[in-house]
Design a protein around this nucleic acid. Structure first.
Lengths: 140, 140
DNA sequence: GTATGTGCAAACTTTTTGCACTTCG
DNA sequence: CGAAGTGCAAAAAGTTTGCACATAC
């Protein structure tokens, strides 16, 4: 995700393009492992020591309100942010607290079919997110 | 869930049965709509005004560590507690922040079958929780 | 030029901690 | 009786807010 694209995303939403917004938004892409506000703050403050904590939170909230990023929460964990706004599922490693994105079109199709036949008159589904808890054996 | 059963659950885990633990645990059952710590505190303090906030948090953490209750988290929301430790899914009303439990054996079977055929060598699944986001039209 | 955004510090909310005292088993 | 639990108040985390100043458009 390059600077030009990030700039366009801000402009499309009618948001002013400020340096702070640019590098905070970039940071979420770079820290692609569902960073916490704290991760983002650390990363940013290394490069731009003068940024205010309040500004980072304000920018995160503006990006959230404009659907440019998402929030992710898991049990035993604080709020995290995700620059990946496509619909996707999460593999959650219960030991390390690492969240990995999980895509599975076949599964999504299965779910769509299941809930189409299922009659749920009281609830209008907008989105289904699977949280798959377990242990990851990734060599990292 | 009666007092005797709650008492047994504590004893089985080798936990001392104190009045505080009894009525905090009971409160989570009674406030069955995935209460926050704050909901629990309000409820308890009405009946037992002398209980300390710290004690409630300590008891909640003891119950969690002993798998007697679960935590539930959603985006845009604070931590909640759930006395229902059976595996189940959640219908999350994005407008009202209400979480309803959702059971669907057929769906669980579908998921089991799907992930059995799916080869995921790097990940050992322990539990799958669907968060179904949408709008509830429940007459309440 | 003006609406919008930022920096800063203070405040707020939620949760944890340390320690003396109390209670369960 | 001794280990474990509770009460209290202080502190730690995480996040929000208000307002003067700065900047994008």
């Amino acid at each position: 995700m390059n600077k030009e694209k990030i700039k366009n995303k801000l402009t499309e939403k009618g948001l002013k393009v400020t340096p702070q917004r640019m590098f905070i938004f970039e940071a979420i892409y770079k820290l692609n492992n569902h960073p916490t506000a704290d991760n983002i703050l650390d990363y940013i403050k290394d490069i731009h020591p003068h940024i205010a904590t309040g500004t980072v939170y304000k920018v995160l909230n503006v990006l959230l309100e404009n659907n440019l990023i998402k929030k992710v929460k898991t049990e035993n964990d604080k709020m995290r942010y995700d620059a990946n706004i496509e619909s996707h599922h999460h593999l959650y490693d219960t030991e390390s607290d690492v969240i990995e994105d999980y895509y599975d079109e076949e599964l999504d199709k299965l779910l769509r079919e299941h809930f189409n036949t299922k009659n749920m008159p009281d609830f209008k589904i907008e989105e289904i997110v699977l949280q798959i808890n377990g242990k990851s054996y990734n060599s990292r």
